[in-house]
Structure formats: C-alpha cells, structure tokens
Design a protein around this nucleic acid. Structure first.
Length: 498
RNA sequence: CGGGGCGUAGCGCAGUCUGGUUAGCGCGCCUGCUUUGGGAGCAGGAGGUCGCGAGUUCGAAUCUCGCCGCCCCGACCA
C-alpha cells in the first residue's frame, strides 16, 4: 500500500492531501509559487460543479458576463475597508514591454515602458464592476442587475495549498444591484441557499449556513453569510460566501438611481462566490488512503469497466459486452469509461480507478461470459457483488444512488459526533489543545470582537459562523459567554479552520 | 515574515561527512516475446548543464562563499 505513494491520513493528513491531489492527477505545481496547473481530471470536476451551479444561478434569474482582469489601481482606494482587506495581497502590473538585456542574455523589463497608472490583477471584481454599474444604472427600471461571472482571480497569498488556497484560482463571483435593502438581503440569502443545497446535494457534504462575525466578514460588506463544512481532520472549511454589501460600494462609486417618486437613492448590492476550493473541500471530505472518493453527481467517471481476457477472442467478447452496457448507461446520462488499455493488468486498473475515484467498477472476465454475469465493485465501501448482466444497469444506478446517500450520511455522522456544546472555559480551552482539527464547538459568545480575538489567541479556534438555524433545539436559546460570562443570544460555531 | 527540510534522468532516492574510473538504484518510458479476476515476467534500449554563479584544487555532485527556488510547520487570508 505504501508503495502507492500516498501518505496514509493517520500518519499525516496534510501530506495525504497533497499526495492525493498530485497522484490522482487533479493538479500539478507550477513554475510560479502558489499557482497550479489544474489537470483534466481536476478540471472535469470543476466543469461539473460549474454546470450545476450555473444552472441554479440561471434558474434564479442571473445572467453571465465577464469583466476585465486588470483594474486601475485608483479604483481600490475608493472603499476603505475593501482596500484594507486586499491591499496586502495584490499583484501589480507596472510595465507593458520587455527588452533584450543590454548586459547579456535574456530579457528585462523595459524601463521606458512604465505605465502611467499601475494596474491591479483582480483579487475580486467589486471595484471594476461598480465602476461599470455606475454607467448602467439611472432609474429603478434598470434594477435589479443580476450578473455572475466565471473568472480567475489572484491573491498573493503568503502560504498556499493546492486548491485550498492558491495565488490564482478559478471561481464565480456574482454582483447584483437592487433598489431596496430588503431585496438585496433576499438575494444574499437566495444565493446562500443555492450554495448550501449544492454543497449537500451535489458534493454530499453537510453545510452549516450562517452569518459571519464582524471580524470575519468580507472587506467592504455590510454583513456576510457563509456555509461551513467539516472535513476528515475535523477542521472547518468555508465552502462559500454571500455578502450583503449594503450601499458601501454604491457610495464609493457614486451609483444612484431615481426611484418611482423621483428621488435619488444609492443602490443596494450583493456579491457572492465559490471557488476551486470546493474541489479541495470535496477531496478532504470523502477520500481515503486508496485515493479519491467522489460523490456520483460530481465524478467525471461514474462507472468504469474493466474487461479481462487472456486471449484475443475473450478480450473481444468482454470488450464488446462492456461497450454494450456502457452504451446503455450513457444513454441514461451516466458518465462511463471502458478501460481497454492492453498493457496494464486488471489489478493495476482496479487500483488506478480507485485512485481516480470512479464510483462503481464493473469487472467482466471469462467466468462472467460463461455465467452471464458481471462483478460490481463499489468505490467507497470496497464491496463487490456478482449480478446477472440483465440486471447490471439497474443495479449500477442503485449503487450510485446509494453511494451519494451514504457519503452524505457518513460526513454528517462525522460532523455530529465531533460537534459538542461547551459552556465552561476550561473545557473549551482543553478541547482545542490538540494538534490540527478539533471538531466544532457550539458555545455562547458575548458578541464582541475583543472576546472573539482573545479566544482565537488562546485556542486558535475562530468563530466560523453564527448559524441561521439551530443545529439542535436549544442552540438558539440565550446563555452566557464561554469566556466572559456576559449574556449571549445564541450558540455560535467555533473551530480551527482552513 | 520567523522555524525546519529539500534541490542529482519524467517521478522517488543513494552518492556529499572523508574530492579521484565512464554519476548509480528503483519506478516510469521505448522495443520484442510471454502475460491478464487486486499494482505481471524476461531480454534489450533511450534518457543527466548533479538548482544557479563565483572560488579552492592537477581534479568538485562532493569543500568555501554568494544567490535562487520549492515543500512543510507557525503568524495573516476564499
């Protein structure tokens, strides 16, 4: 097992994750620190995510557009909190030309080609978008604007990890403009619900929808919502965010509209996004020491066929039978692959497809030809069963259905068995003493940033969110802050986070 | 930005301390034959600016100095 080159989770979770991402060919490191190559297998997962989310956005009235990569530096100074949040991690374009190095080999930046105004590579697009919306909005009849874009952004992170935090990443960012505060609030919540349902139904990862604290909210937002998930090392990971921006950007970019009464008002805004971090979340949520475990809805290959045969004739027959079943499944919309590689042994293929995360493997060999059967192996449980060919398609669909339910259930059980309610400081502090993730703690908090930061300093645990709905009855009842003993309205989620 | 580790074939490593044939090994790759129900075997073959730059020396992967890069762990962030 160890010669597969994947560090077991029990030895080192971080190494396991890195090994898996590389070995399963999801991504590669790039020549530039913090950037990555998303390989076809990883990109296929992203495409499936994109399609599902994009359909949901469209179904709720959104349209796609694409704004430019480069943003004039001056735009960033408009919204104070926004600058504060992003200034320290921006890549800046200062020149537009290279020249041959007069002293020798290679090329150097041409000092003559300095830009009048430096350009920022977008870390997020609020500023350029609001600068544009200003020209698009005059009347309440121009509202709402419900635009999304699929794009890459760049944040010069000090410490990066494949998919979880890369300098450049892919995401979608929605930017909407509304006539009223209530409508913007509804928009932020609608999107949050899309994210939650996507996370749970497509990724099979249970998510807690909640409100970010002032301390954790998006730079420039009035308030931020998020979905938080737990992965196998018991850390929290933010899987998506939806912000109500209030009138902050409208004021910064002077975006006003005339209402039905002829009065000028600033518009209300939201922005929201999920990124390729979802792929990292997905890997960390379900996969095991043998490789990827993917939920059927997001598996690039749901069903893989491994036909076997010593001789040409047997091979032809098992290939043909595999093709026939695969065609029937494809007809029904499943993503299938018949592995016809001749050099690799069946055993190699079994391991290889387990690494790649194919949900169900169909083995067809000489014995099956005689018996009119095939063997179905389920990726996440490792269980094998022999079925009649006539029943194969039905059974495969059942197994995929069950896989999705099982992955969600298992992830939910992990979260529930590692979530506790703690009301005294000693126990709280003790809970977070261990290395790495320590699960979720639902505790009371007095609502101040000061307390939040003190707790973070002492325990490394942060407030992931203030749940919108109680996880259990009673979580939304008043109590006393776990640190200060001051009154608290409800329990909030504490955890060590990615 | 602090601490640690590493840079030698596509990948993983040995060799470096103690300088000295033509720089090795495993995996992978190419060719051929035999193989195929849990990572096949044999034979042959291709593949190297030893991270970069100076220096010491008759001679440097190995010693000295400088530089660069990457990974991991902490502080900050989707």
């Amino acid at each position: 097992m160890s010669d597969l080159g994947i560090t077991p989770r029990s030895i080192n979770y971080a190494d396991w994750y890195n090994d898996l991402v590389l070995k399963a060919k999801l991504a590669d490191y790039s020549p530039v620190r913090g950037c990555m190559v998303i390989r076809p297998h990883g990109y296929a997962i992203w495409e499936l995510m994109q399609r599902a989310l994009d359909d949901m956005f469209k179904a709720t009235g959104h349209v796609n557009a694409c704004f430019p990569l480069l943003i004039p530096k001056s735009f960033f100074s408009r919204e104070a909190a926004h600058v504060e949040g992003f200034a320290k991690e921006c890549a800046i374009v200062t020149h537009y030309r290279l020249m041959n190095d007069p002293n020798g080999e290679g090329v150097v930046v041409d000092p003559e080609a300095k830009l009048e105004e430096e350009l920022i590579i977008r870390p997020t697009s609020e500023t350029i978008i609001w600068n544009t919306y200003k020209d698009w909005i005059q009347s309440y009849r121009d509202l709402p604007i419900l635009i999304n874009q699929w794009a890459n952004v760049m944040r010069w992170e000090r410490r990066t990890r494949l998919f979880l935090r890369t300098a450049e990443f892919l995401w979608q960012e929605g930017h909407t403009a509304h006539a009223t505060n209530e409508e913007a609030e509804q928009e932020a919540l609608t999107i949050l619900e899309i994210y939650r349902s996507f996370c749970e139904e497509w990724m099979c990862v249970p998510a807690i929808a909640g409100l970010k604290t002032e301390n954790e909210k998006f730079a420039g937002a009035h308030h931020s919502y998020c979905i938080e998930a737990m992965v196998q090392d018991l850390r929290a990971i933010q899987a998506g965010t939806s912000h109500h921006l209030g009138q902050n950007f409208a004021k910064a970019f002077d975006v006003k509209f005339q209402n039905a009464n002829g009065e000028l008002e600033y518009v209300y805004a939201t922005s929201w996004g999920v990124s390729t971090r979802l792929i990292g979340t997905l890997v960390m949520a379900h996969s095991d020491d043998k490789g990827l475990v993917l939920p059927p809805k997001l598996a690039p290959i749901q069903v893989v066929f491994v036909p076997m045969g010593r001789d040409e004739q047997t091979r032809e027959k098992t290939f043909a039978l595999s093709d026939k079943i695969a065609a029937e499944l494809s007809e029904a919309g499943l993503r299938c692959k018949v592995d016809k590689r001749e050099k690799e042994s069946p055993g190699f293929k079994f391991n290889d497809w387990e690494l790649q995360g194919a949900c169900v493997r169909v083995e067809i060999g000489p014995r099956d030809l005689e018996a009119g059967t095939c063997v179905l192996a389920v990726r996440d449980t490792g269980e094998k069963q022999t079925v009649q060919i006539a029943h194969a398609c039905t059974q495969i669909r059942t197994l995929l259905e069950e896989t999705g339910q099982r992955l969600f259930k298992k992830a939910l059980e992990l979260r529930e068995s590692n979530t506790q309610r703690i009301d005294d400081w000693d126990s709280f502090e003790k809970q977070f003493q261990g290395e790495g993730g320590c699960g979720f703690v639902l505790a009371h908090w007095d609502g101040t940033t000061e307390t939040e930061q003190t707790i973070a300093e002492k325990t490394k645990a942060t407030i992931r969110c203030i749940p919108l709905k109680p996880l259990e009855a009673g979580d939304n009842q008043p109590g006393r802050c776990v640190l200060t003993g001051k009154p608290s309205e409800q329990r909030v989620v504490f955890a060590k986070a990615y």
